[in-house]
């Protein structure tokens, strides 16, 4: 059985907000390592890989690996019934036909209990090859969200060019073109806002902005984001949390 108590329930609410528009149903794979999820969007263009490590919960107990098949829209609806400061406890027994959720307020005088019906989801996991990326950009997650949203005004695609000087996001469309360049600035006073680039080789890649904007729903989870790129391989967008991560992979657009 699974028992996982999350002191900051708001974290789980934010995680659901970050994935529910990209994927509809997914298995939460519970093991002694923690709770993981891997799922592709319906059009097989993007993939979400989530890990909530066991040490982020207190207590965390999972005697036997369990796959909890969840409709993410339903789960996010139930999680909206939890207060932002509530402690959330997830429980499931080995038959895994329901997920029990308990929300306790901080004064411990209001306890709400919900049960969500689970489903059988036949999902196959994809093997993600170990990749040494040619370019890794670390930047403010809020800045990344702003750039994606701004450029979406112009086009449904963005070209990302990374050199050792900086990273340029450019878009061209019917109404015109636009570009935002962030210079590498590791010396700025505000570490949170610095743009840092590790580069083996310059890269220039095209991606769908619709998906990138969707990924930025994870912005409330982390102040920093990393973009890992190599020519003609999927982009990795990673938001690191205190005890885990949310990673998005996006297949590139490639010229014929």
């Amino acid at each position: 059985m699974l028992e996982a108590r999350l002191q900051t329930g708001a974290l789980l609410k934010k995680v659901l907000e970050a994935i529910k528009e990209l994927i509809t149903d997914a298995n939460f794979d519970c093991s002694d390592n923690g709770i993981a999820l891997q799922a592709m969007d319906n059009s097989h263009v993007a993939l979400v890989a989530l890990l909530l490590r066991h040490d982020g919960f207190e207590p965390y107990r999972c005697d036997r690996s369990l796959a909890l098949g969840v409709n993410l829209v339903s789960l996010s609806k139930v999680l909206r019934c939890a207060g932002n400061d509530d402690i959330i406890t997830l429980k499931a027994d080995d038959t895994a036909d329901v997920l029990s959720l308990t929300f306790e307020n901080t004064d411990n005088d209001r306890i709400s209990e919900y049960e969500l019906k689970l489903m059988d989801i036949d999902s196959e996991h994809l093997g993600i090859p170990d990749t040494t990326y040619e370019a890794v950009v670390q930047m403010s997650s809020a800045e990344f969200a702003r750039i994606c949203k701004d450029l979406q005004v112009l086009s449904d695609s963005v070209q990302i060019d990374v050199t050792k000087e900086g990273v340029k996001f450019g878009a061209k469309g019917e109404l015109g073109s636009g570009a935002v360049t962030l210079k590498q600035n590791g010396n700025v006073d505000k570490e949170e806002e610095a743009t840092l680039i590790e580069l083996q080789q310059n890269v220039s890649l095209n991606f769908s902005l619709k998906y990138l904007v969707n990924f930025t729903k994870a912005t409330p989870l982390a102040s920093r984001v990393s973009l890992s790129m190599s020519s003609e391989v999927p982009l990795l967008v990673e938001y690191k949390m205190e005890a885990g991560y949310i990673r998005y992979y996006l297949a590139p657009k490639i010229g014929e």
């Binding site: 592709m40 097989h44 263009v45 993007a46 993939l47 196959e124 996991h125 994809l126 093997g127 993600i128 090859p129 695609s157 095209n206 769908s208 391989v233 999927p234 992979y249 996006l250 297949a251 590139p252 657009k253 490639i254 010229g255 014929e256």
Partner: peptide, 14 residues
Amino acid sequence: TPVQKSLLSFFKPK
């Protein structure tokens, strides 16, 4: 114009 690739051409089912 660039064409959207499928993720399945990069990542294979385990």
